[in-house]
Design a protein around this nucleic acid. Structure first.
Length: 598
DNA sequence: GCCA
DNA sequence: CAGTACG
DNA sequence: TGGCCGTTACTG
């Protein structure tokens, strides 16, 4: 049975003539009169575009708030004055952006209201709403597809829909739709048996047990899986992202595109692809259709289009062309030199250099010291470091620190802590409950490791934190001048080789943190780049804090915010301190293995 | 490229 | 100053 | 339409 749809107007935008005809044929409630339509559908993804289309249809509206959970997250720029807003919230308000969109159940309310309620409200939805609804034989909640919601303010609306005179079939439609929703496969766990319990956080998604486990008629009508609640946020630090997500192969393709954008100097493209990659990395279901992607934060039509291309051809145009593009291949070679970024890689190419030998032959003296080291150990630095070797290196560092004082503690951070089987480099954070011990330790430690021939080269040593007396104090105000930097930990970036077995040279970062900010230190050094960026963005936007690995500060007055000490004093160990930082930031605890944002 |  | 590094 | 992590710190 086909779902009972509201009156729908289909926008021709971005649709081929035959696509348009085919779609129109599938809409029993199609209308071409904008004043009559309750839902306007289009292959569009932005509210701005929705408004533009409304203007083109000469349909005047005023914005209406989203009904249900979030009255203050109105679509459009006016505060909503929604008639039907007296929908009681079924649970306490969610904190922060978890509540950005209303929940599925409240969404039903919005949808039912849409079907039977006052006729002067019009919704502009993504086309995917129709496709998904037809697919699932159910009128889906509009929430995840909503671009704009407005009330018609033309003279038509007054007469056309008097609330007192019910539309034909109204009550029927309402109740039937409601039961259709409840009986439909939509409310049932729909993931394949092997994947349903794949994420640690699944319990949080849809806790109500599946009712009415009705057999579906045919296998090909598998409905789209529901979007987990945590995928309604644009902050990757608010959701679990595991190492090997179901869609790893498609993600790999997006990463390839991201690298190409980087080499071309498209910084913003890099950020955009990183956002979509992080979103997909958190999606616990194997993708089935392109329209599934557009529902995810940070993923729009472009990513969906790439997915389609990738499923059809096995790769995207951009990566296929890049494979035979000499310039990009060479740029990648140069970019992989430690100390060479994308700008320098392009400079090298411009000079006519095409391989490492060219650099050595024609440009050696123009290289910086670290770039020379990067070229010298080019091949060795490409090698991955197995976990046991990381542990060996870390234990040597800790032993040397404990030779200074036995109270030192260490956490191996970076990709090792996220559980990766091998790493590109080794990162360790050292701290000591006695603050006097972490002051100026970095230089002593490095020289100790140099003397023992573990460190073969020192790339750079940061000592700013010690120089300011390890004070995590105001980064502004208090007479401190901006720009002089008061918020970085002491650290050393070195080249390491085991003097006994003379294995490959390794990149090692040693970070020193005062005990009172050690939680921030390991948090700041354990997440992947996107997790890290989003954490800082979250702290800024949602909390009014400035986060970095040397502590949390208030943006209002720049003062240090201690999230790591309790009434009973400082944290007993660094992991405990890290948990307290999550709490203080109003974030759910994420084990490091769930910070794999790609 | 996507979002507020 | 621009470029690069780190997660 | 502007913003996208960091008024990063270090190097040359």
């Amino acid at each position: 049975m086909a779902p009972e749809l509201p009156r729908i107007l289909l926008l021709p935008t971005h649709l081929q003539a035959d696509e348009l005809r085919e779609l129109e044929a599938r809409i029993p409630t199609l209308t071409h009169n904008a004043h009559e339509a309750k839902v306007i559908l289009g292959k569009i993804s932005r509210p701005e575009r929705a408004l533009f289309e409304l203007r083109r249809l000469k349909l005047a509206t005023e914005p209406v708030a989203l009904e249900g959970a979030e009255g203050d997250e109105a679509i459009g720029d006016k505060r909503g004055r929604s008639d039907a807003a007296e929908v009681p919230s079924k649970r306490p308000r969610l904190s922060g952006s978890e509540a950005l969109r209303s929940r599925a159940d409240e969404g039903h309310v919005a949808t039912l209201d849409l079907l039977g309620g006052s006729g002067d409200v019009v919704l502009v939805l993504k086309l995917a709403w129709l496709l998904d609804s037809l697919e699932q034989n159910v009128v889906l909640p509009a929430d995840d597809y909503l671009l704009y919601q407005g009330r018609k303010i033309s003279s038509h609306s007054a007469q056309a829909s008097n609330p007192g005179t019910p539309q034909p079939r109204k009550e029927d439609e309402t109740t039937r739709s409601a039961s259709a929703v409840n009986d439909s496969p939509y409310s049932k766990r729909t993931t394949r048996p092997g994947t349903s319990s794949s994420t640690a956080s699944d319990g949080r998604l849809h806790s109500e047990p599946p009712t009415l486990h009705r057999e579906t008629t045919s296998e090909h009508e598998v409905p789209l899986p529901p979007i987990p609640d945590f995928l309604h946020t644009t902050y990757s630090c608010q959701r679990p992202s595991l190492v090997s997500p179901p869609n790893a192969t498609f993600i790999a393709e997006l990463k390839a595109i991201r690298t190409l954008r980087l080499l071309r100097g498209d910084q913003v493209g890099v950020r955009a692809y990183s956002t979509s990659i992080a979103s997909l990395a958190a999606y616990p279901h194997l993708l089935q259709r392109p329209q599934e992607i557009e529902r995810l934060p940070g993923c729009g039509p472009k990513i969906a289009q790439l997915y389609q291309q990738w499923t059809e051809d096995g790769c995207t145009d951009e990566t296929r062309k890049a494979k035979t593009d000499t310039e990009l291949v060479v740029l990648k070679t140069f970019y992989d030199i430690w100390g060479v970024g994308d700008t320098t890689a392009r400079q090298f190419f411009k000079k006519g250099w095409r391989d490492l030998d060219d650099i050595v032959e024609y440009g050696w003296d123009s290289l910086s010291r670290v770039q020379q080291i990067g070229v010298k150990y080019y091949d060795e630095f490409q090698l991955k470091i197995p976990r046991d070797e990381t542990e060996t290196i870390a234990s040597v560092i800790l032993a040397h620190a404990r030779r200074v004082d036995p109270g030192f503690q260490m956490v191996i951070v970076g990709s090792y802590r996220r559980g990766k089987p091998s790493s590109g480099d080794v990162d360790v954070v050292l701290s000591h409950p006695d603050e006097a011990q972490t002051l100026d330790i970095i230089e002593r430690l490095v020289s100790s490791l140099e003397k023992s021939n573990f460190i073969t080269h020192t790339l750079s040593v940061w000592t700013k934190n010690s120089e300011r007396g390890q004070a995590p104090l105001a980064w502004k105000g208090e007479g401190r001048r901006a720009g002089s930097g008061f918020d970085t930990l002491d650290k050393a970036m070195v080249v390491w080789q085991n003097p006994q077995d003379k294995g490959p040279h390794r990149r090692v970062d040693i970070i020193i943190s005062p005990w009172k900010t050690a939680g921030c230190a390991i948090l700041g050094w354990s997440g992947e780049t996107t997790f890290q960026r989003d954490l800082r963005r979250y702290c800024k936007v949602k909390m009014g804090f400035k986060f970095d690995s040397s502590g949390v500060r208030s943006r209002a007055d720049g003062s240090w915010v201690d999230l790591e000490s309790s009434e009973r004093g400082p944290a007993p160990d660094m992991e405990t301190a890290e948990r307290r930082v999550f709490e203080g930031l109003d974030l759910e605890w994420r084990p490091p293995a769930e910070r794999c944002t790609g």
